[in-house]
Simulated assay, not measured.
Amino acid sequence: MIDPTTTKMYAEAAEAADAVERQFTANAGVIDALVARLKQAPPRFIVTCARGSSDHAATYGKYLFETTLGLVTASASPSVGSVYAVQPQLDGALFVVISQSGKSPDLLRNAEIAKAAGAIVVALVNVADSPLARLADTVIPLRAGPENSVAATKSYLCSLAALLQLAARWSGDAALLAAIEELPEAMRAAWRQDWSSLVSGLRLAQNLFVLGRGLGLAAAQEAALKFKETCGLHAEAFSSAEVKHGPMALVGADFPVLAFAQDDDTGASTAAIASEFRARGAPVWLALPGAQGAGVLPLPAPRHPACTPLLTVQAFYGAVNALAVARGHNPDVPPHLNKVTETV
């Protein structure tokens, strides 16, 4: 068995706070210029376009934009443009494309369609000279640095951070602006949290639900993907509201549940469904900033709940890396996967 602290995934996840801090400083000018343009000609709505972990970041962006700006935000299906050759009516939209490599053909095609339709195309990319970056009206570099492990970690967190900085400066929310100043240090604190109970509890598991809601749903989606790709553990993400519409029938004794609760108005309902599942005999772990008690995974409390998903995922990455090793996997080289997936 390898030492979990020697994997590329561990090292790269540990760099996330430094990368976010670097990003906030370096991107301030480009964000402010974009915000000035958006305030001068406000978009009618926002559309996101992404796949994989980047699409989970887009889920976060949806809730972030809708809760801070009140702008309806929808996710585009890349296949509509690249396979079905449909040209959606996107005039007056802000079209946000999120991609680590910036060269997947389907994302490029949809960005081209959006630009031709009159949308403002903004690309969040880790490769600043990629084809997507050259196509976009505005490029927001993720600045995660090289990422060699197949499992994306710091680039995902940098995607969330870029969306957060954009929303904070666009909305002018004083509390959110203050919170992002403290975010890198809060992420460092999250990385130090002890989630070993999750590792030991899931070492022999075969199935798992991961729950989140609102701003926290993207964290649940990302966790479920990482369980599958790094641990060979079948995990499905659900909103803590949607899980009650059918999927909860599967949860009973010995069916594990990981719940990510937000420190906002969605938190109580997520904690309540976690308690309900625990009462059925299910092994349940709850991550909620500041919470204590049996089955609680510790998290520092940020100044603003929009920062909580980044802290949750930062702590989770350390745990899932250790779990992968405990289950006999190398998280850096999952079977059948490549670092860059180019979908047509």
Rank of each mutant, 00 (worst) to 15 (best):
A161C: 06
I140M: 15
L177N: 14
A162Y: 10
S159H: 00
M187V: 09
S196V: 13
A189D: 06
L204W: 13
L177D: 13
R143G: 14
F209P: 02
A174M: 08
L208T: 09
N207C: 11
E182V: 10
R192P: 00
E147P: 03
S149M: 10
G214S: 10
R192Y: 02
R203H: 10
S197W: 06
R213N: 07
P141E: 13
A168C: 10
L211C: 13
L142C: 11
L142D: 01
Q206R: 13
G214P: 01
N148Q: 14
Y156K: 06
A186K: 14
L177F: 02
A205G: 01
S197Y: 05
A179M: 08
L160A: 02
A151K: 03
L176Q: 02
E185D: 15
A174Y: 03
G214K: 04
M187L: 07
L160I: 00
V150K: 06
D173M: 03
A175M: 07
L176Y: 01
L176F: 06
A179I: 00
R169F: 08
E147W: 12
L160D: 00
A205N: 05
N148S: 14
G201I: 12
A151V: 15
P146Q: 12
D194L: 07
Q206A: 05
L204P: 00
A167T: 00
R169P: 07
L183N: 05
P184N: 12
P141T: 14
V210W: 11
I180H: 00
S196Y: 13
M187A: 02
W170H: 08
W191I: 01
L164C: 09
N148H: 14
A152N: 03
A167C: 10
L204D: 15
L198Q: 02
A174F: 00
I140K: 11
A189E: 09
Q193Y: 04
P146C: 12
A189I: 05
Y156C: 03
A144C: 11
L176I: 03
L166V: 04
G214V: 11
I140Y: 12
L157Q: 08
P146M: 13
L208E: 04
V210R: 04
E185G: 11
S159R: 02
A162C: 11
V139C: 12
V210Y: 09
D173N: 14
S196I: 13
L176S: 00
Q165P: 00
R192S: 09
G214H: 04
S197E: 12
A168G: 08
P141A: 10
R143F: 15
A144E: 05
L164I: 08
A152F: 01
A161H: 08
R192L: 07
L176A: 06
S200E: 14
G201T: 12
A162K: 07
I180C: 07
R203I: 15
M187I: 11
A168W: 03
L157S: 09
S149D: 04
S155D: 06
R213C: 05
A144P: 02
K154H: 06
R192F: 02
A175V: 01
R169S: 15
N207M: 12
S159W: 02
A175Y: 04
Q193I: 00
A168K: 05
S196K: 14
L202S: 01
A175K: 12
R169L: 13
L160W: 03
S155F: 03
P141C: 13
R188N: 06
S200Y: 10
L157V: 11
N148G: 14
Q193P: 05
V139W: 09
V210A: 10
